[in-house]
Design a protein around this nucleic acid. Structure first.
Length: 687
DNA sequence: GAGCACTGC
């Protein structure tokens, strides 16, 4: 998806608030540059390996892993831990002819690191060294070192909770604390214990991180020893605002031009802002101001950077700056971890980020602009010292920095846990509330997730007491087989009763990718007009199905996508997801069939999964959700906006200026009681 | 009568 220039981050910057960045030796600097090239001879690669800082820690690490069950490795940027540690373990025969897994939070990282390590081993990727990510398994029976996404290992654990194919599991980038990594912590720890109790081959666990919160990891893994590995980060001068800034956007603009005035040309600037709209407007302001500058200033190239930006626009960020000019990149936190941009000398950190927070009580996800954590601030700072010394302008004061959270709240404490809980149950962990999380999610959010699963018919209480053991039902087991939110998995399973699996596979695939609509701000009316022919009176799900069918009938033509204002990239992804879901439904022996032109079966299936997301029209012409009686409205982007159907289900709620329902479908209220008699009966009794 | 940080199976 992204170009080669986008080197994924495999090692992470220092996040220690107290420790200054330290300089690398000149020699290692030269080697670092070599490493960034592409074609190397085997001999060259072996020489480079021995120059890495981690090489000197090799013996100690091997001894520790030999002797103990678990180890923590703290390694800074460029230490080479991700590429070297799996090789050290393999070369020392510690894999015992089983697999060494090394998990990554991101696909691109798993793939490119595997390529690199395979080259170092003088082999093709997919043989001794392989990778496994969704849609792409590059391993075979000879594979011993396997890079994979953390979500992939979690999927495998459902089929095999003690992970018998693996002798060593390395959890890399642990400081990022993704939901998948956090669940894996508990899963590998339990697998290790199980194997020990049953007298099986031990499972060694290595946690690799760039965090300052080392003790937390160590304690969780039985006081595992911690190995520190020096990195190769250049010093970055940190400058704080002298007084608090009320307008971070304005402060950012002023700072950009201050740096532009004082710094030599060819020293590029990276600015961290929070979102697409803010970035586009800042880019425009910078361009406008730059136009009015005198000829004494170097020319300015301004690039926006955010995930939703079309790939060919993203490319610009990676192109080298012409000699004598300066590049300013205005980015979301995508440049914090997911992409590495070369040539950055100055970082401007507004200290703000847009992050998701979840309210278990209302079940509402919402995106909020908030302060970054200290760890994130150091991560941003580190982006200025990748290739040479740099500077970082913090648009907040030092006391303000001191008041920030040391680490970000782990994702598992701020998201809907229905998927996680379903997976834990599928792993055979019945006592979800007391699962050994490194940082426990709140009891409320675990209970809300269980409630949802019970309503969907995925779990049943095995005995009558309130604290009774929970068990997955047959339906729950089938739901867990799909890489989907439980609501969407349920939609697929009920399709067998309504004979419309073909349609539901498409709709669910479309719901699990980002928007397939492309609506440029200045061409909104044209886009709406072009897509009018696809609109279904039954709502957005059916409209999307129409678009997908048309897309397929034009063989995914790019021209067609362009003319109809739909996002070809996301439609293609949906087709890929659909294929995977189809394979799983074949494995579960769900009958493949179509309902033709009748939309009723489709809407009944949607109701069976989305009944918790239902709303009815009130007398005064506004909507209220059925379960929580919350005031909501149809999102203006919906094909049902302006229509007033009596009863609807929706995919999700988004809170902006109002609480909006997104992806709305017209349903019959009787279908709701049919789909979840317990849920709606219960509601009537309590009101 | 509006707007969407970032990943991942």
């Amino acid at each position: 998806m992204l170009p080669n220039a986008n080197t994924p981050k495999t090692d992470s910057g220092s996040q220690n608030g107290k420790r200054p960045f330290h300089s690398p030796s000149p020699q290692s600097n030269k080697k670092q540059k070599l490493m960034n090239g592409s074609a190397h001879s085997y001999v060259q690669l072996q020489e480079e390996r021995q120059q890495l800082p981690i090489y000197s820690a090799r013996k100690k690490l091997l001894q520790q892993v030999q002797r103990l069950a678990s180890a923590i490795v703290i390694g800074e940027t460029g230490s080479g831990k991700t590429t070297q540690i799996p090789q050290f373990l393999y070369e020392a025969q510690m894999h015992r002819n089983h697999l060494i897994a090394c998990t990554q939070p991101r696909r691109v990282a798993a793939m490119t690191v595997a390529e690199r390590v395979a080259a170092e081993k003088g082999a093709e990727v997919g043989e001794l060294v392989g990778y496994c990510v969704r849609f792409d398994d590059m391993t075979n029976e000879n594979t011993r070192i396997k890079y994979m996404t953390d979500g992939m290992l979690l999927r495998e654990a459902i089929l095999d909770p003690i992970l018998k194919r693996y002798s060593i599991v390395i959890l890399d980038e642990a400081h990022e604390r993704t939901v998948h990594t956090d669940v894996l912590f508990g899963v590998v720890k339990a697998a290790q214990k199980q194997r020990k109790n049953r007298g099986l081959m031990p499972l060694k666990i290595i946690v690799m991180s760039a965090t300052m919160d080392v003790d937390h990891f160590s304690q969780y893994f039985g006081d595992a020893p911690v190995l520190y590995i020096q990195g190769r980060q250049f010093p970055v001068e940190v400058l704080y605002a002298t007084e608090p800034q009320s307008d971070y956007l304005f402060a950012a603009l002023v700072t950009v031009f201050q740096v532009h005035k004082d710094a030599p040309p060819n020293e590029d600037i990276l600015v961290f802002l929070t979102g697409q709209e803010e970035i586009e407007s800042a880019v425009k302001s910078i361009k406008d101001i730059a136009q009015d500058l005198s000829q004494d200033y170097p020319p300015l190239v301004v690039c926006p950077m955010y995930a939703a930006l079309p790939a060919y626009h993203q490319l610009r960020v990676f192109q080298p700056t012409p000699k004598g000019s300066r590049k300013v990149i205005v980015s979301t936190n995508i440049a914090e971890t997911s992409v590495t941009i070369h040539g950055i000398k100055h970082v401007i950190d507004t200290g703000m980020v847009k992050a998701k927070s979840y309210n278990a009580g209302s079940g509402l996800d919402l995106l909020r602009v908030q302060r970054v954590s200290q760890a994130q601030a150091w991560q941003r700072t580190g982006r200025a010292g990748r290739e040479a010394p740099g500077s970082c302008y913090r648009l907040y004061t030092e006391p303000e920095f001191g008041k920030m959270n040391i680490n970000a709240v782990p994702e598992i404490q701020r998201c809907n846990l229905a998927s996680v809980v379903l997976q834990l149950l599928a792993l055979g962990i019945s006592d979800v509330l007391s699962f050994d999380f490194m940082d426990k999610p709140s009891k409320d959010s675990l209970e809300a997730a269980l409630q949802q699963l019970e309503w969907l018919g995925a779990v049943a209480v095995a005995d009558c007491s309130a604290q009774g053991k929970l068990k997955l039902t047959a339906v729950g087991k089938q739901m867990a087989a799909f890489p989907l939110d439980p609501k969407l998995a349920k939609i697929l399973l009920v399709a067998r009763e309504h004979n419309c699996l073909d349609e539901m596979l498409t709709i669910v695939a479309l719901l699990s990718v980002e928007s397939i609509l492309h609506t440029p701000q200045n061409k909104r009316d044209e886009a709406v007009a072009a897509r009018k022919k696809f609109v279904s009176p039954d709502g957005d799900h059916l409209t999307m199905l129409n678009i997908y069918r048309a897309y397929k009938s034009f063989n995914g033509s790019k021209q067609w996508c362009f003319e109809n204002y739909v996002n070809g990239r996301n439609l293609k992804l949906a087709a890929e997801v659909r294929k995977q879901l189809h394979e799983i439904s074949c494995r579960l022996q769900l009958p493949s069939n179509s309902c033709g032109r009748d939309t009723t079966p489709i809407r009944k299936c949607l109701t069976a999964g989305l009944f918790m997301n239902s709303a009815e029209l009130q007398k005064e012409g506004k909507y209220a959700t059925l379960i929580t009686r919350k005031a909501v409205a149809i999102h203006p982007s919906s094909s049902l906006f302006m229509c007033k159907p009596a009863c609807v289900v929706y995919t999700e709620l988004v809170q902006t200026t109002k609480c909006y329902m997104r992806d709305v479908c017209v349903v019959d209220p009787d279908w709701l009681t049919e789909a979840a008699p317990k849920c709606f009966k219960k509601k009537k009794m309590s009101t």
